[in-house]
Write a protein that binds this DNA or RNA. Structure first.
Length: 420
RNA sequence: GCCGAGGUGGCCCAGACCGGUAAGGCGCAAGCCUGGAAAGCUUGUGUCCGCAAGGACUCGUGAGUUCAAAUCUCACCCUCGGCGCCA
C-alpha cells in the first residue's frame, strides 16, 4: 500500500508511474475523489463531536428547561454524527480497497517496459550444458527412475499433486537442508512457522484481496493455507516497533506453499507448476536508507545456492510492466532446464520499500525519542524446490538414464553419488 | 470444550460496584538550573483531519443503551491458571 499522503501531494507522479506499469489510472482517480469526500465528512463529524464535547461539559451544570433543551439538541447532533460516521466508514473502506490497486513506485533503476520482453538480463553464470544424447525431460526421468509418482498423487488429492519417492524424496530433503545450512552461514536466522495463516496476515503482505482466489481457504476456521513463506515470516512482526540497532533482521524459512493456480493451463505436465510445493525463503527487514543495497545482497545470497549446485543460470532485472505490483525492484533468477531447453524461474528477489510494512504496521525507531518510521521489507526464494529439482535432474542426467548427485548435496545423502 | 483470573498510551499501574470524558509512576527527549553532571522543576511523548490555529480519536475487538461509556448490556478475540479431550 502506498503512502496516501504521497498520493495526495503528488498525484501526477503516481499517474506517470501507473502508465509506465501498464495500469489503468482509474484507481488513482477513484482514490482522489473518494479520499476528498471522506476528508470532508471526517471534518464535519469532528466539528460536531467538538460541539457535543463542549455541550457534555455544560449539561451537568445546567438546570430545568435549559438543560432539557440542550439534551434534545445533542440528541440530534448524535444522530447526525452517527450518519456521517457510517458514510465516512463506507467511503474509507472503498478508498482503502481502491488504494490496493495502486502499485508500488518502481525504483529509478528499473527499466520501463511492457512485459517479459522488456526485462533486462544483468548477469549469467555458467553455460547451458551440451549433451551427446537427447536429454530427457524431468518428468520422464522422474518416472523412469521411480522417484516421482504423478498418478498416486492425483489419487490421494487430485490433479497437480505428486509424490516424491525413494531417492526423489531424499533429494528433496537434501536440497532443503543444503539451502537452510547455506543461508544459516550467510547470517540468516532459521524459523519454522505455521503453514496456516489468518486473514490479517495475507492482508499484511498484500495477497488479500487481490490474490484471494489463488489461495486455499479453510472456511470453517476462516484461515488460509500459506501461499509463500513470505506471508508468515513477514507478518510475524506485525504491529511491532524495532529499535534501530535491531535492524537488519534476516530470516530463512523452509515451508510448504499452497496455490490453487486457478485456471492453470501452461506447464501442467510435470512439477513446474503444482498446487503444493516446498520453498526455502529469505526475508529481510531493513533500514529504509540502504534497502536497494540489501536487495543486491539478498540476490547474491540466493545466487549462491545455484552456484553451489553448479547449475547454469541467468539474472533478469524485471521491467516496470512485468514486476509484481507490491515490488519496487525485482530480480528473477532463472535456471536452465535442458530437457525443454527453457529457463525456469527458481527465485524472485524483491525490495518492497515500505509498501508491505505499511500494511502490516512494521516500524522502527530511528532514535529512542523519535517518531517511528516504517521499515523496508525484502524477500526472495532461496529457492523454490520443484523447479530446482527439475534443473538438478535434467542438468545432472547421464546417458544411461541415471542422475549424478551434485557434490554439494552428497553429504546430505550419506555420500550417495548416483540416483538410478 | 468447561471453570476461574486478566487485557488501560513505549512500559508499569489506578479508575469500574455508584457513567461526566484516562490519574500516578517509569523510560526517553527538550528547556530551565550547573563550571560540568546528578538531583530538582517545566513541557512533551500514540493515531487521524488540517498549511496552520485547532479539532477529533484511542482503555483487547465489535455492536447496543445514553446528551455523555474505561465504567452499564450483549457477542467475540487473545493471554495466564485449573479441568476435560487428544497425538
Amino acid at each position: 500500500m502506498l503512502d496516501v499522503d504521497l498520493i495526495r501531494r503528488d498525484p501526477e507522479l503516481i499517474r506517470t508511474m501507473m502508465r509506465n506499469r501498464n495500469y489503468s489510472e482509474e484507481a488513482l482517480d477513484n482514490f482522489l475523489s473518494l479520499d476528498g469526500e471522506w476528508r470532508r465528512l471526517v471534518e464535519e463529524s469532528n466539528q460536531l463531536r467538538h460541539k457535543r464535547n463542549v455541550a457534555s461539559e455544560q449539561i451537568p451544570k445546567l438546570k430545568g428547561e435549559e438543560k432539557q433543551k440542550c439534551i434534545a439538541e445533542m440528541r440530534e447532533v448524535a444522530e447526525r454524527i452517527k450518519q456521517l460516521d457510517a458514510s465516512a466508514l463506507e467511503l474509507e473502506a472503498r478508498r482503502d480497497e481502491v488504494v490496493l490497486n495502486i502499485p508500488n513506485v518502481p525504483d529509478a533503476s528499473v527499466p520501463v517496459g511492457c512485459d517479459y520482453d522488456g526485462n533486462r538480463m544483468v548477469a549469467s553464470h555458467g553455460q547451458a550444458r551440451k549433451f551427446d544424447f537427447i536429454p530427457k525431460k524431468h518428468y520422464e526421468l522422474g518416472e523412469d527412475l521411480d522417484i516421482i509418482d504423478f498418478q498416486r498423487g492425483v489419487k490421494i488429492t487430485g490433479s497437480g499433486f505428486y509424490i516424491l519417492k525413494g531417492d526423489g524424496a531424499r533429494l528433496e530433503r537434501a536440497l532443503i537442508q543444503y539451502m537452510l545450512d547455506l543461508h544459516h552461514e550467510q547470517g540468516y536466522t532459521e524459523v519454522f512457522t505455521p503453514a496456516i495463516v489468518n486473514t490479517g496476515a495475507v492482508i499484511g503482505t498484500g495477497q488479500y484481496p487481490k490474490m484471494k482466489d489463488d489461495m486455499y481457504w479453510c472456511e470453517r476456521d476462516d484461515l488460509w493455507l500459506n501461499p509463500t513463506a513470505e506471508v508468515p515470516v513477514t507478518n510475524m512482526h506485525q504491529d511491532e516497533i524495532f529499535e534501530r540497532e535491531q535492524l537488519p533482521l534476516s530470516y530463512t524459512a523452509y515451508l510448504p506453499s499452497f496455490r490453487r493456480e486457478a485456471g492453470r493451463n501452461a506447464d501442467t505436465r510435470g512439477i513446474i507448476r503444482v498446487h503444493q510445493f516446498n520453498k526455502v525463503e529469505l526475508v529481510k527487514f531493513v533500514h529504509p536508507s540502504n534497502s536497494f543495497q540489501d536487495l543486491e545482497a539478498l540476490r547474491s545470497d540466493a545466487e549462491a545456492v545455484l552456484q553451489g549446485l553448479e547449475l547454469p543460470y541467468r539474472v533478469l532485472l524485471l521491467c516496470t510492466g512485468d514486476m509484481g505490483f507490491a515490488s519496487a525492484k525485482t530480480y528473477d533468477l532463472e535456471a536452465h532446464s535442458p530437457g525443454a531447453d527453457q529457463w525456469l524461474e527458481v527465485s524472485s528477489c524483491s525490495c518492497f520499500t515500505d509498501f508491505q510494512a505499511r500494511r502490516a504496521r512494521i516500524k522502527f525507531r530511528p532514535e529512542p525519542h523519535l517518531k517511528s518510521e516504517f521499515v523496508h521489507t525484502l524477500n526472495g526464494s532461496g529457492l523454490a524446490l520443484p523447479r530446482t529439482m527439475v534443473a538438478v535432474l535434467e542438468n545432472y542426467q547421464n546417458k544411461d538414464g541415471t542422475v549424478t548427485v551434485p557434490k554439494a548435496l552428497r553429504s546430505y545423502m550419506k555420500g550417495q553419488e548416483i540416483i538410478g
